[in-house]
Deep mutational scan, measured.
Amino acid sequence: MTSCHIAEEHIQKVAIFGGTHGNELTGVFLVKHWLENGAEIQRTGLEVKPFITNPRAVKKCTRYIDCDLNRIFDLENLGKKMSEDLPYEVRRAQEINHLFGPKDSEDSYDIIFDLHNTTSNMGCTLILEDSRNNFLIQMFHYIKTSLAPLPCYVYLIEHPSLKYATTRSIAKYPVGIEVGPQPQGVLRADILDQMRKMIKHALDFIHHFNEGKEFPPCAIEVYKIIEKVDYPRDENGEIAAIIHPNLQDQDWKPLHPGDPMFLTLDGKTIPLGGDCTVYPVFVNEAAYYEKKEAFAKTTKLTLNAKSIRCCLH
């Protein structure tokens, strides 16, 4: 018999989150649709729960009410004593943790798909938090293969000092899905179709896995975050240069030392320094102006996964 890495157990509980950011409308629209008619997301033997994560922000069509829901799922915020004085999103995070967690427990949901849009030209993107997770690498390989020839990129946010504390991190297997470009507060049919297909293929993978299909060893190309880059700023902290036209919409493309990065209003080009080629992502993302992030630098690498098969009882 072929030796293989056996994944822990079959997958039982899956959640699909929309509206973690209330103005990213593809996930909101799909989740609302699936709450009314969820036939397309159901798979035999699998509990799939669509869920609106930040209903107040969705109602106002804004990213958040008090603070970013997708950055506060750490033990400090989840452990705060519940009171009306807490920011709305912290209270909501505790409610979500109660419903789908608790985080880092045996009772937490197996998989959470968190649906997002970006204003950046990132196409279909899967966000991975753990480079050693054979199950998710296999799932992402399946999704990428199923979507081809449509490109699907994998963004690895594993980093020693950049801690995200994402909404989906309460699950055993957290999956971020990011599709763009799409303006905030807008629905685009092409973007919706791409996100819908990503979810379909992900659920198909889980179904095949649960039925005992063995997935042979595989490898995927990923883009691992190195650092986030702020806009150049003046002495008052105001933005002093904008994304250069040569960099705009060039997510995932190589940016070499000396290539144009920013452009000042008086026409001066600010190039990339250093001696390493990087791959920019979230270029000129609207939501990241407040976070002082013009783009993120990534490096390209390959992740390998062992063969996996479900432990059938």
Rank of each mutant, 00 (worst) to 15 (best):
residue 288 Y to P: 11
residue 155 Y to F: 07
residue 46 L to N: 03
residue 26 T to A: 09
residue 286 A to E: 09
residue 102 P to T: 15
residue 192 L to W: 06
residue 109 Y to I: 14
residue 265 L to H: 08
residue 9 E to V: 10
residue 140 F to P: 01
residue 161 S to P: 13
residue 144 K to N: 04
residue 162 L to R: 12
residue 112 I to F: 03
residue 240 A to T: 13
residue 239 I to P: 09
residue 287 A to R: 15
residue 198 M to Q: 03
residue 313 H to S: 07
residue 62 T to G: 07
residue 129 E to V: 06
residue 65 I to H: 12
residue 40 E to Y: 04
residue 130 D to Q: 06
residue 76 E to D: 14
residue 64 Y to V: 10
residue 94 Q to F: 14
residue 89 E to A: 05
residue 61 C to K: 07
residue 3 S to F: 07
residue 133 N to A: 07
residue 182 Q to R: 02
residue 51 F to Y: 15
residue 2 T to Y: 14
residue 252 W to Q: 02
residue 290 E to P: 15
residue 276 C to Y: 13
residue 202 A to N: 00
residue 240 A to W: 06
residue 42 Q to I: 13
residue 70 N to K: 14
residue 36 E to C: 06
residue 265 L to K: 09
residue 168 R to Q: 13
residue 4 C to V: 09
residue 245 P to M: 03
residue 35 L to A: 11
residue 170 I to E: 03
residue 31 V to Q: 00
residue 63 R to K: 14
residue 77 N to E: 13
residue 60 K to L: 12
residue 132 R to P: 07
residue 298 T to W: 02
residue 267 G to Q: 09
residue 147 L to T: 05
residue 124 C to F: 01
residue 213 K to L: 12
residue 298 T to I: 03
residue 299 T to E: 11
residue 136 L to W: 00
residue 116 H to V: 00
residue 283 V to R: 01
residue 61 C to Y: 09
residue 209 F to H: 04
residue 181 P to F: 01
residue 81 K to W: 14
residue 33 H to R: 08
residue 282 F to L: 12
residue 279 Y to Q: 01
residue 224 K to R: 09
residue 140 F to M: 15
residue 207 H to N: 14
residue 234 D to Y: 08
residue 297 K to A: 09
residue 230 D to Y: 13
residue 87 P to S: 10
residue 195 M to V: 07
residue 8 E to N: 12
residue 70 N to D: 08
residue 148 A to H: 15
residue 24 E to P: 00
residue 106 E to H: 11
residue 167 T to Y: 08
residue 252 W to E: 00
residue 165 A to N: 12
residue 300 K to N: 04
residue 24 E to D: 14
residue 208 H to L: 13
residue 270 I to Y: 05
residue 286 A to Y: 08
residue 28 V to I: 13
residue 59 K to M: 11
residue 62 T to K: 14
residue 114 D to K: 04
residue 69 L to F: 10
residue 306 K to R: 09
residue 5 H to N: 09
residue 244 H to L: 00
residue 74 D to S: 12
residue 184 Q to T: 13
residue 196 R to T: 04
residue 140 F to A: 09
residue 57 A to M: 11
residue 158 E to Q: 07
residue 101 G to K: 07
residue 298 T to A: 15
residue 181 P to L: 01
residue 69 L to A: 10
residue 130 D to L: 02
residue 185 G to N: 15
residue 228 K to W: 15
residue 88 Y to T: 09
residue 172 K to R: 11
residue 294 A to M: 02
residue 205 F to Q: 00
residue 39 A to C: 09
residue 136 L to D: 01
residue 229 V to W: 00
residue 109 Y to N: 04
residue 285 E to W: 02
residue 265 L to F: 14
residue 94 Q to W: 12
residue 85 D to H: 14
residue 193 D to R: 06
residue 279 Y to P: 00
residue 240 A to G: 11
residue 15 A to F: 03
residue 270 I to K: 05
residue 210 N to Q: 07
residue 265 L to A: 14
residue 29 F to D: 00
residue 32 K to W: 05
residue 187 L to M: 10
residue 166 T to P: 11
residue 45 G to M: 05
residue 178 E to T: 15
residue 109 Y to E: 02
residue 158 E to H: 05
residue 145 T to V: 13
residue 239 I to Y: 04
residue 108 S to D: 09
residue 253 K to M: 11
residue 41 I to K: 01
residue 92 R to T: 12
residue 95 E to Q: 15
residue 252 W to T: 10
residue 202 A to R: 02
residue 35 L to Y: 11
residue 221 E to S: 04
residue 249 D to M: 01
residue 9 E to Q: 07
residue 197 K to P: 02
residue 305 A to S: 14
residue 10 H to Y: 11
residue 99 L to W: 15
residue 39 A to S: 07
residue 165 A to T: 10
residue 199 I to D: 00
residue 304 N to I: 10
residue 66 D to M: 05
residue 128 L to D: 01
residue 251 D to R: 02
residue 227 E to K: 06
residue 197 K to E: 10
residue 301 L to A: 05
residue 60 K to V: 10
residue 244 H to C: 02
residue 115 L to I: 09
residue 104 D to Q: 10
residue 297 K to Q: 05
residue 298 T to E: 01
residue 120 S to A: 12
residue 154 V to C: 14
residue 202 A to P: 00
residue 291 K to T: 08
residue 143 I to L: 04
residue 289 Y to C: 12
residue 103 K to W: 12
residue 147 L to R: 00
residue 33 H to G: 14
residue 213 K to Y: 08
residue 237 G to H: 06
residue 296 A to D: 15
residue 169 S to E: 06
residue 217 P to G: 07
residue 186 V to E: 01
residue 83 S to T: 11
residue 291 K to E: 09
residue 184 Q to N: 07
residue 306 K to I: 10
residue 17 F to W: 10
residue 157 I to Y: 12
residue 269 T to A: 07
residue 300 K to E: 03
residue 115 L to H: 00
residue 147 L to I: 13
residue 209 F to A: 04
residue 141 H to K: 06
residue 22 G to H: 11
residue 193 D to L: 07
residue 235 E to F: 13
residue 230 D to G: 11
residue 149 P to M: 03
residue 89 E to T: 05
residue 300 K to Q: 08
residue 28 V to L: 10
residue 89 E to Y: 04
residue 287 A to G: 14
residue 32 K to S: 11
residue 148 A to N: 15
residue 2 T to H: 08
residue 155 Y to D: 02
residue 53 T to Q: 04
residue 65 I to F: 15
residue 228 K to T: 13
residue 246 N to A: 10
residue 195 M to E: 04
residue 160 P to I: 10
residue 145 T to S: 15
residue 140 F to K: 02
residue 100 F to Q: 05
residue 246 N to D: 10
residue 85 D to V: 11
residue 217 P to Q: 08
residue 161 S to W: 11
residue 181 P to K: 01
residue 205 F to G: 00
residue 116 H to G: 15
residue 233 R to G: 04
residue 179 V to A: 14
residue 149 P to G: 05
residue 142 Y to E: 00
residue 220 I to V: 09
residue 172 K to N: 10
residue 236 N to G: 08
residue 289 Y to Q: 15
residue 104 D to P: 12
residue 215 F to P: 02
residue 224 K to A: 06
residue 42 Q to N: 11
residue 183 P to T: 05
